[in-house]
């Protein structure tokens, strides 16, 4: 059994997880898809210029994975801090 933490610690752990997830969210869309697009377009993924691929395909795949990973980690956190439902 994990020791039961306080609500404040639970919230802090959640915020840390949020920070990491949002950093990835920002990187794949704004950084890879827009700001660095010209640099990345020098590389290719099949027939896709890489920056273009991030903007029109890759970022979307990462978003989907990101939500499920966050949801799973939050489930763990809920149980660890004993704030889960039922």
């Amino acid at each position: 059994m994990q020791p039961k933490g306080t609500a404040a610690e639970y919230w802090k752990a959640n915020l840390r997880l949020l920070g990491i997830s949002l950093a990835i969210w920002f990187a794949v869309s704004y950084v890879f898809g827009i700001m660095l697009v010209d640099v990345l377009n020098k590389f290719h993924l099949g027939g896709y210029p890489l920056g273009f691929w991030f903007a029109q395909q890759g970022s979307i795949y990462v978003f989907v994975i990101l939500i499920f990973v966050y949801a799973k980690n939050m489930d763990k956190l809920d149980r660890k801090f004993d704030v889960h439902e039922d």
Partner: peptide, 29 residues
């Protein structure tokens, strides 16, 4: 819009999907 604007229309693709990340992480629960 993608057909006529090409890469520039990526904003719609990223914008309308990336919003779900914010929704799932920051608001929905």
């Amino acid at each position: 819009l993608i057909a006529f604007n090409g890469y520039d229309a990526s904003v719609y693709l990223m914008g309308w999907t990336g919003g779900y990340v914010l929704l799932a992480l920051l608001l929905a629960p």
